[in-house]
């Protein structure tokens, strides 16, 4: 290979770079478009005062609300929130299994099977949880049970998708080893498939539980139990110190759940 005489740095030939420029330019254009017609400064005149009041409320929480014993206090509603998330996630983990095998690629002869499964799961994921909760409230009345059903149904969309990905990414090597050693189909399932999938399933379920905790704390807005109900009451009656204590409670609850679930998930892998 000979070097050219000039030894000058040649100009860059733009082979794939233009695509990036076009995409980047479009992105900027979309953001600019989004700002058009937005009532940017349409903020309530007393926003500052209310904002201040809320912050003051957060720093002076209404401690008396933490526990009153009437079942409507913070601790009771937080516990109920955890229960909704737990029961809902548990149900959805079980319901998700068949959906996951349906949607997993590489398990069926026809691609349409897994494709249709994926499509259905996307549909379930997109169905707003609030709407679901209201529908279940119609069926079982405004209760925590409606919340459990909403969380349980909605979670299937995501959990089954995660499960199906775990199945797709399954390493075939271990299964092949069992087959090579003379194992049957059932043997491979028991000795290779399940042991490999189980930690993944548990980890995904725990992750979904972390999200379910957040869902369960908002479903109270429509009356499906949990801490959302007292919070929305407190906001609409402008009881900011009560809002403060409830927010504090939610932050602590979510942090605790994230921490415990995160620790367990780390040990699994």
């Amino acid at each position: 290979m000979e070097l050219s005489e000039t030894h000058k740095l040649p100009a860059r030939t733009h082979t794939g770079a233009w695509r990036r420029w076009v995409a980047g330019g479009l992105l900027v254009a979309v953001v600019l478009w989004a700002f058009t017609g937005m009532p940017a400064l349409a903020i309530k005149p007393n926003a500052q005062r209310i904002g201040g009041a809320i912050i003051a409320g957060i720093f002076h929480p209404d401690w008396s609300y933490v526990y009153t014993g009437d079942g409507e206090d913070l601790v009771s509603t937080l516990l109920q929130t955890v229960a909704i998330a737990f029961a809902g996630t548990f149900i959805s983990a079980i319901v998700s299994l068949p959906f996951a095998f349906w949607a997993a690629r590489g398990k069926h002869k026809f691609w349409l099977v897994s494709r249709s499964g994926k499509f259905l799961l996307t549909a379930i994921r997109t169905f707003p949880e609030i709407v679901l909760a209201l529908m279940f409230i119609k069926a079982v009345g405004p209760s925590a049970f409606a919340g459990v059903l909403a969380v349980g149904f909605h979670s299937v969309g995501m959990l089954a998708k995660l499960f199906s990905e775990a199945i797709e990414n399954l390493d075939n090597g271990a299964g092949e080893a069992v087959t090579a050693a003379g194992g049957t189909h059932l043997d491979t399932t028991m000795l290779a498939t399940i042991p490999q999938l189980l930690p993944e399933f548990v980890s995904n379920t725990l992750y979904r539980f972390e999200l379910a905790i957040r869902s369960a704390s908002i479903l109270g807005i429509v009356g499906a139990g949990g801490v959302g109900t007292p919070l929305i009451f407190a906001i609409s009656s402008r009881a900011w110190s009560r809002v403060g204590i409830i927010l504090l409670g939610i932050v602590i609850m979510v942090t605790l759940v994230d921490f415990i679930s995160g620790t367990v998930r780390k040990r699994l892998v």
């Binding site: 349409a42 903020i43 809320i54 908002i218 807005i221 906001i235 927010l247 939610i250 979510v254 942090t255």
Partner: peptide
């Protein structure tokens, strides 16, 4: 930790 809909409810109270 704060769920989105709760944040929204709070900010509706603040900015309208």
């Amino acid at each position: 930790t704060i769920p989105d809909l709760l944040l929204a409810a709070l900010f509706v109270a603040v900015v309208g």
